[in-house]
């Protein structure tokens, strides 16, 4: 074999060695556990703490309100749609849930808008309907109609 080919082969061998070394040290532990990505990334995403608890967890303590709500039209709604996430309140009851004030929370869903399909929920023009009066003066939000 000519000398220049031997030298070239040596250079190639050195480079391939460096690349293999880099690959060994730089590849993350769980690479290709499921595919061309870090398998541990899935476990890290799962570790995120859920902030919304479930309606049953609310009803465990607030059973009287849950009872009222279960008889009204707001029955299928999750408590946390209006009251915000409950993960802190469940561990520590001194952390209070949101108690919505004013009409804004009601009007999120009940504002009259042509884009909103008819017959799904009752929608009103706030000014026309109550002339700016608070919704809760007439309606109990946990059981809007009796």
């Amino acid at each position: 074999m000519p000398l220049q080919v031997k030298r070239l082969l040596l250079v190639f061998a050195v480079f391939i060695g460096i690349m293999l070394g880099l690959k060994y040290f730089l590849t993350p532990d769980s690479w290709r556990e499921y595919g061309p990505y870090r398998g541990n990334a899935l476990k890290e995403i799962v570790n995120q703490v859920p902030k919304f608890v479930q309606m049953e967890d609310c009803a465990a303590c607030h059973d009287s309100i849950a009872e009222i709500k279960s008889q009204g039209e707001h029955n299928p709604l999750q408590c946390e749609i209006c009251h915000g996430p409950g993960y802190r309140h469940i561990d520590d009851e001194t952390v209070k849930m949101e108690i919505p004030k004013g009409n804004a929370v009601c009007m999120r869903c009940h504002t009259k808008n042509a884009a909103s399909p008819s017959g799904i929920i009752k929608q009103i023009d706030a000014v026309e309907h109550s002339e700016g009066e608070d919704c809760i003066n007439c309606h109990n939000p946990h059981q809007p109609w009796l």
Partner: peptide
């Protein structure tokens, strides 16, 4: 909400949808 799915909870948007 992969973290919720893996714990048997519904994704937050599915849970919050009133209709």
């Amino acid at each position: 909400c992969y973290h919720r799915l893996q714990q048997g909870l519904d994704p937050a948007c599915m849970m919050a949808c009133p209709t």
